[in-house]
Amino acid sequence: MNPLAGLEADMALHMLVEFPLLVGAGAALAHYAPRRIDEAIAPFDRYGLAGWTLASLVAAYWMIPSALDAALGSSVVNAFKYASLLAAGFALRGSLRRSPFALEAFFVGNFTWMAATVGLVYQDADVQLCLNYLAGSQQQAGRGLVLLAVAALVGWFALRSARVMPRVPAG
């Protein structure tokens, strides 16, 4: 029995609650993981490039409508979904320690326009894009994705300006 089935019954909850929860859980896992795991990853993740790439691609993949249907239709695909989103969160936690501001700006900006575009497509579509979700749920997911896109940009900027600003020489 899938404990997250309740979240997956609705498209907006699936994408906007379950996905961030899984990414967050992955990040929390990385936060409490032994230090040597991150030390082993670090040489493969200079400037956080690999982690940010993985997270971007995972996010893009799970915005494809047929990916959502595939996850609902097969427990193997669903397990792959959990694993990939957890891995994205896990990798991102380490990469955030290594990535320079410009690289983060690129990936966050990339995510923002992608999520916003997909959100607008979901809202504009005059057909049901997912076999398992009603058009109303799709509209909600579309609006939520646009909000998530903006929130990600603003949230990241707020988080990072705190780190970057003190480096600006005073006076």
């Binding site: 040489p43 493969f44 993740d45 200079r46 400037y47 490039l49 690999a50 790439t53 993985l54 691609l57 995972v58 893009a60 993949y61 494809i64 409508p65 047929s66 990916a67 249907d69 595939a70 239709g73 894009l129 997912c130 076999l131």
Partner: peptide
């Protein structure tokens, strides 16, 4: 090593997406 990791990630993602979308022809089930 970083570029290799990025390459592998891109390759796997491309293969997974191509498989799902029947070679980028179908984005809905």
């Amino acid at each position: 090593p970083t570029l290799a990791a990025v390459g592998v990630t891109l390759g796997v993602a491309f293969a997974a997406a191509a498989h799902l979308t029947l070679g980028f022809r179908a984005f809905t089930a």
